[in-house]
């Protein structure tokens, strides 16, 4: 339920104007107030002395010190520059600033103009190197000696960076390790690099699914398998069975012999060859391009 007052703004002003009367000021109020006041108004605090003048020299001194520090740091970094070195080095010595860690000058076009003192030639090749030192070529021996070798600019070899770790000794490739193991344990088995890293198989063009009869999956030519078979048959284990059934029977028989402990070295090599052949067949790429 909403209540709407029936008094307008003008009526309100008239009503308030009629009620503006107030009682007169009580008598003696001034005296009572004066009696309650303190004796004197709260005095202002005494004027304090002005702040002592600021130390006007402080900021310039800080600025000078900071610029000196920055400048000496920059100079210590630039002392390696050959042109600035004769200027900066005595200055830094006067200031007592240690130069930056010495860096060997890099051979640049500017440094080539100023000859460095001749560096001794590097020592002969270490004896650990297997390659014998080649005799000097005849042409070089026949050349006349340089007129003034001391004046030629020579560059010091760049120092190795401290942050770079020394190069690790060259490790033999895994294929080389496998080849060495194979040569040690199976000296008669020929190397089969195709089994480890088969070359990319050339995908033949797609045959026409309608006109071309689909070849048998089991008889599908496979480059990796063929290569493995040829590699296997080319060695002493060339007496492997030709058909898959014969190979499976032979593999079963060889396994049985291995379990019985009657496996001869020839049989072991044959078993190994059969296993390798089977692994090669298992790893051949899927016949995705063959129509089924």
């Amino acid at each position: 339920m909403s209540f709407t007052p029936a008094i307008s703004d003008a009526d309100l002003a008239r009503l308030l104007g009629a009620a503006s009367t107030t009682p007169p000021l009580p008598a003696g109020l001034c005296d009572r107030i004066m009696a309650a006041l303190p004796a004197d108004p709260v005095p202002l605090p005494p004027p304090t002395a002005l702040r002592p003048a600021r130390r006007r020299w402080l900021r310039p001194a800080i600025a000078i010190a900071a610029s000196l520090a920055i400048g000496s740091a920059v100079a210590a970094g630039l002392v390696d520059v050959p042109r600035l070195a004769p200027i900066l080095a005595p200055l830094l010595q006067q200031l007592g600033v240690a130069p930056a860690p010495a860096r060997r000058p890099q051979p640049t076009a500017r440094t080539a103009a100023r000859p460095h003192p001749a560096q001794p030639a590097p020592a002969a090749a270490p004896p650990a190197l297997a390659t014998p030192a080649l005799p000097p070529p005849r042409l070089q021996a026949e050349l006349p000696a340089p007129a003034a070798p001391a004046t030629l600019p020579t560059f010091a070899p760049p120092a190795p960076l401290a942050s770079r770790p020394p190069a690790a000794p060259a490790r033999p490739a895994p294929t080389a390790i496998r080849a060495a193991i194979r040569a040690e344990h199976l000296p008669d088995l020929p190397a089969r690099p195709m089994l480890i890293a088969p070359p990319p198989v050339a995908i033949p063009p797609l045959p026409d699914a309608v006109t071309t009869a689909p070849p048998a999956v089991t008889a599908a030519p496979d480059a990796a398998t063929d290569a493995a078979e040829s590699a296997t048959r080319s060695g002493p284990a060339a007496t492997l069975p030709a058909t898959a059934a014969e190979r499976a029977a032979a593999l079963q028989a060889l396994r049985q012999a291995r379990q019985n402990g009657s496996l001869t070295p020839d049989q072991a090599r044959q078993l190994r060859a059969l296993q390798t052949l089977r692994a090669a067949r298992a790893n051949r790429p899927p016949p995705a391009t063959r129509p089924r």
Binding site: F3, P5, A6, I7, S8, D11, L12, R14, L15, A18
Partner: peptide, 21 residues
């Protein structure tokens, strides 16, 4: 608005003013 409501609740209106007001 509040004063108008209080005055209306108290029964005050412009009719309560003296004749000249």
């Amino acid at each position: 608005a509040a004063l108008k409501g209080v005055m209306a609740a108290a029964g005050l209106s412009a009719a309560d003013l003296p004749g000249d007001l």
